[in-house]
């Protein structure tokens, strides 16, 4: 259940950003890499729980899943990795560096100032 810790951290981060600003958070835009093994439904469920009673309790959690992308260190081509085989589809090399897929960030929030 790392979703619960992630939800708590999302709340904490937004509180830090808003500080004493009186605002209702209506939407939270997240970018989550596929390698993170975050289950969106579980994260939404956990967030509802941790946000209860706060200014973000009715916020919509919008999760943008980021594909796992790699670049081959041999032939220098990049590609999307759909399964956990970190092998270059062009030259077969296994010297693949990750370009994306480990993101776990809050991109933006939408608020209504009150």
């Amino acid at each position: 259940m790392h979703e619960l810790t992630i939800a708590e951290n999302i709340k904490k981060t937004i509180e830090e950003v808003l500080k004493d600003k009186k605002a209702v958070v209506t939407r939270i835009n997240l970018r989550v890499g596929k390698l993170r093994a975050v289950v969106p439904e579980a994260l939404i469920f956990c967030f509802k729980f941790v946000a209860e009673g706060s200014s973000m309790e009715n916020a919509e959690l919008k999760i943008q899943e980021i594909p796992v992308k790699g670049i081959c260190k041999k032939c220098d081509r990049d590609f999307v990795i759909d399964e956990p085989l970190f092998i270059c589809p062009f030259c077969g090399s296994n010297h693949v560096e990750l370009l994306s897929g480990r993101e776990l960030e809050i991109e933006s929030i939408e608020i209504e100032e009150g």
């Binding site: 776990l104 960030e105 991109e107 608020i111 209504e112």
Partner: peptide
């Protein structure tokens, strides 16, 4: 109103 944040969620742990 949209506020750009661009913060890593687990930044504190990192």
């Amino acid at each position: 109103m949209e506020i750009k944040i661009l913060r890593r969620v687990l930044a504190a742990n990192e």
